[in-house]
């Protein structure tokens, strides 16, 4: 096995005249918790679907743990579990047998599949519903079942396309904890999300995709540092010009000092002292920390929810 869980090179996908992926390059190290962020139509789901075999690529290549997704698809597919955004279940069977059959498609005997299904249903708090059909489950339960299904064959990598879309906060936190544990236990996780908080909390690496290309990649902290813009805002009275002689970057608009700062807390101390020295009264202080959302906005000119 290679040290890369995913290796994508010059990946292209055209839907008629629309280019969904435009020479996408991406590497995801084994064991990482990787976030793929992008607005609607950026190419996230197309990328995932090419990795899992649901979409035929137009050019380039994609490998899963060194196995080409086209020429060595059997081995590549065994190593991925997919929890797609859209819920999909085989409604003809109760959820226990549905999971056991899903395991069977990956080579598990039905008996082993049922044992594994029991284990996962227990883990996701669905044991009591094991004889029910997926139709009889609530939305949150279905979402949990979807993730359980992706884990049936215990793949080393799981791909989650918007796993917490439309779920309540309690379930979201439960899923976050579960995914963190899975990652700690060695699973590589590729996650797409619209929730910036989710990416910041969970992912060790984030790639921003727009117009079918990766435009930035790094740890959330690095990206924020590189492209973000934290700032300090101090509302003052009796402002006097020319009291700041240092080469400090700031602007004064509407009785408020706007100060860009990498570490606003540290900068604040200096400014408070300086204003005090010059008898300028402070009415309000506000620290605005940059987030991945700002990075995203700056890089793409669009909000993540666009």
């Amino acid at each position: 096995m290679s040290n890369l869980a995913v290796q994508i090179k010059d990946l292209n996908k055209n839907y008629g005249s629309t280019q969904a992926l435009n020479g996408l390059d991406l590497e995801i190290p084994e064991g990482s918790f990787f976030g793929l962020l992008g607005p609607n139509g950026a190419g996230k789901t197309t990328t995932i679907n090419i990795l899992t075999g649901l979409v035929n690529k137009s050019g380039g290549y994609a490998k899963i743990f060194g196995h080409d997704t086209v020429s060595d698809y059997r081995n590549a597919r065994k190593l991925i579990g997919l929890a797609p955004q859209e819920l999909s279940f085989d409604f003809f069977f109760n959820i226990r047998d549905m999971l056991a059959l899903q395991g069977g498609y990956y080579g598990m005997s039905f008996k082993t599949g049922r044992e594994r299904a029991d284990e996962l249903l227990n883990q996701f708090g669905l044991s009591e519903k094991s004889e029910n059909n997926a139709r009889q489950l609530s939305g949150g339960m279905k979402r949990r079942l979807q993730i359980a299904k992706s884990l049936m064959h215990d793949p080393p990598m799981i791909i989650l396309d918007e796993p917490t879309a439309g779920v309540d906060i309690e379930l979201r936190h439960m899923l976050w904890k579960f995914l963190k544990d899975q990652n700690k236990n060695g699973k590589t996780i590729l996650l797409t999300t619209h929730y910036i908080e989710e990416a910041e909390n969970l992912c060790d690496t984030v790639a921003i995709i727009d117009h079918g290309k990766i435009i930035e990649q790094g740890s959330p902290r690095t990206l924020i540092k590189k492209s973000g813009s934290s700032k300090l805002e101090i509302k003052v009275k009796n402002w006097k010009d020319n009291i700041i002689n240092d080469n400090r970057d700031f602007s004064f608009i509407n009785e408020t000092l706007h100060i860009p700062a990498e570490k606003p807390e540290k900068e604040m101390i200096w400014w408070i002292e300086k204003l005090k020295e010059n008898n300028i009264s402070i009415e309000d202080i506000h620290i605005s920390k940059s987030s991945l959302e700002d990075v995203f906005l700056k890089l793409t000119g669009r909000s993540l929810n666009d």
Binding site: G53, Y73, R77, S88, D90, Q102, Y105, Y106
Partner: peptide, 11 residues
């Protein structure tokens, strides 16, 4: 019901 995808992603 979209579960054809569950088959298409298998080996």
């Amino acid at each position: 019901l979209k579960f054809i995808d569950d088959l298409l992603i298998t080996p």
